[in-house]
């Protein structure tokens, strides 16, 4: 067990420093890149919070879907191979369900304000 503050709390503090204290002192390109850097830290924070459970869920779904074991990378590569070969596709209900869950989780980490994600949440009844 690590001491306080937690990784998430440290990132929050750094992000707040960049956004509210450093960026206003910067100009032009450097100010723009500072805002981008703060956004990148937001992604890291959300991945720390959501990633472990999401990856475990994704791996469990993939193992069931593919009937095999392996790392997340191996499982995703095998899924890609089967989609390319046409062995699974839009006619496979479990695939559609899996891809939707995985995609929504990725967006929850990467870009939770993206219009397509907000709309998909409404359409899935999760928002």
């Amino acid at each position: 067990m690590q001491d306080q503050p937690s990784a998430v709390e440290l990132i929050e503090a750094v992000t707040e420093f960049i956004r509210n204290h450093a960026t206003p002192q910067l100009q032009g390109h450097t100010a723009f890149h500072a805002r981008v850097a703060a956004n990148a830290l937001d992604i890291v924070k959300r991945e720390l919070e959501v990633g472990p459970a999401a990856n475990a869920g994704e791996a469990a779904r993939l193992k069931a879907l593919l009937g095999m074991d392996g790392s997340l990378d191996e499982l995703n590569r095998e899924l890609c191979r089967r989609i390319e070969a046409g062995e699974v596709g839009l006619h496979t209900p479990a695939l559609e369900e899996h891809l939707w869950q995985t995609t929504l989780t990725k967006l929850a980490i990467d870009q939770p304000n993206y219009s397509g994600y907000r709309r998909a949440l409404e359409e899935s009844g999760k928002d």
């Binding site: 990148a40 891809l99 995609t103 990725k106 967006l107 990467d110 870009q111 993206y114 397509g116 994600y117």
Partner: peptide
């Protein structure tokens, strides 16, 4: 950093493709 974060935007196109 800008390039790195654009890399993480491929998921935006994934949700668009799924829709």
């Amino acid at each position: 950093v800008e390039r790195a974060t654009i890399g993480r935007r491929s998921s935006e196109t994934e949700v668009d493709l799924m829709r």
